[in-house]
């Protein structure tokens, strides 16, 4: 769970500073942020943590605070080191929670907002038509014609199948950010 102490001290300015710390180029900073979050979520979920995304956010929060106070050279290495600390702390917390005295029966996991198809449609509309068609083409294949169709898409775009998959993934990432923003 996020540490209340670090959450309190976070400000919009510090977050903007953190993005700049990741990359001075604003657009690139967004990508770097998503990439870092992916690394952290993957790290925590593959370590079988119950709240991987919250631990990823906690790690980022700590890095934001530290990066606003000190110069950190190896950024991603540093994030990894903080993530390992957060992981160890979470293990200690989990162990403590086994103690019945600390179990808060009233506390429930916050309800997750259900995925908004309206937001998806809005964001799909915002995508350039070639990107939108690429995504829909990628998902529309009939099972038997899959390989053939993917080959034909990649041929029509004059690109390799791996490059096509990368392009699909990047487009999906853009779409995901848009949908998340739309859902608030």
């Amino acid at each position: 769970m996020p540490d209340a102490r670090t959450k309190k001290e976070l400000t919009r300015e510090k977050f903007a500073g953190f993005l700049e710390w990741l990359s001075p180029d604003r657009d690139h900073a967004g990508e770097e942020y998503e990439r870092l979050r992916f690394r952290l979520c993957t790290f925590f979920s593959q370590r079988r943590c119950s709240f991987a995304d919250e631990l990823a956010d906690e790690t980022i929060n700590r890095v934001i605070l530290k990066s606003s106070e000190e110069i950190i050279e190896k950024k991603i290495d540093y994030c990894y080191a903080v993530a390992k600390n957060v992981f160890r702390e979470s293990l200690r917390k989990e162990r403590r929670q086994v103690d019945l005295d600390e179990v808060n029966l009233a506390a429930e996991a916050p309800e997750e907002p259900s995925f908004s198809r309206e937001c998806l449609d809005k964001c799909l509309e915002k995508l350039p038509s070639d990107s939108r068609n690429l995504l829909l083409d990628y998902f529309s294949e009939a099972k038997l014609a899959k390989i053939k169709l993917h080959r034909s898409i990649s041929e029509s775009l004059k690109t390799s199948p791996t490059a096509l998959r990368m392009r699909v993934m990047r487009t999906k990432l853009k779409l995901k950010i848009c949908v998340q923003e739309c859902m608030g």
Partner: peptide, 26 residues
């Protein structure tokens, strides 16, 4: 792995919704 991975669940729901849209278009 899904119950503990909110991020992956979101990606999964988005992929499912995209597939629906693609099938509707077909």
């Amino acid at each position: 792995a899904l119950p503990a991975d909110v991020e992956r669940r979101f990606k999964l729901e988005m992929a499912q919704a995209l597939r629906e849209r693609a099938l509707a278009r077909d």
